[in-house]
Measured scan of single mutants.
Amino acid sequence: GTLHLNGVTVKVPSLEKAIKAAKKFAKKYNLEVQVHGNTVHVH
């Protein structure tokens, strides 16, 4: 999967790991997580 954090793109081995990391990051910075196919966006 691919993880987008505020314009930074990170390749992640699995989508589940990407979503987990995204949710952790989003919670910390009070951001929103959106999943588009195998790409996770945090903004």
Rank of each mutant, 00 (worst) to 15 (best):
G1R: 03
G1H: 10
T2Q: 12
T2C: 15
T2S: 11
L3Y: 00
L3W: 01
L3F: 01
H4F: 06
H4S: 08
L5K: 04
L5D: 02
L5H: 05
N6E: 06
G7S: 05
G7D: 05
G7T: 07
V8W: 12
V8Q: 06
T9E: 10
T9Q: 09
V10Q: 03
V10R: 07
V10S: 04
K11N: 11
K11L: 11
K11W: 15
V12N: 04
V12D: 02
P13V: 13
P13E: 11
P13T: 14
S14H: 08
L15T: 02
E16K: 12
E16Q: 10
E16F: 03
K17P: 01
K17I: 13
A18R: 02
A18H: 01
A18W: 10
A18E: 00
I19S: 00
I19N: 00
I19E: 01
I19H: 01
I19C: 02
I19Q: 00
K20L: 09
K20V: 08
K20W: 05
A21R: 08
A21C: 14
A22K: 01
A22N: 00
K24Q: 10
K24I: 10
K24L: 08
K24T: 05
F25W: 13
F25G: 02
A26H: 01
A26Q: 03
A26Y: 03
K27M: 05
K27W: 02
K27V: 04
K28G: 03
Y29T: 04
Y29V: 06
Y29C: 10
Y29F: 10
V33E: 00
V33N: 00
V33H: 00
Q34W: 14
Q34H: 15
Q34L: 12
V35W: 07
V35Y: 04
V35N: 01
H36R: 10
H36G: 02
H36Y: 08
G37T: 04
G37Q: 05
G37I: 07
G37S: 04
N38I: 11
N38Q: 06
T39F: 09
T39R: 08
T39W: 11
T39V: 14
V40W: 01
V40A: 03
V40G: 01
H41K: 09
H43Q: 09
H43Y: 13
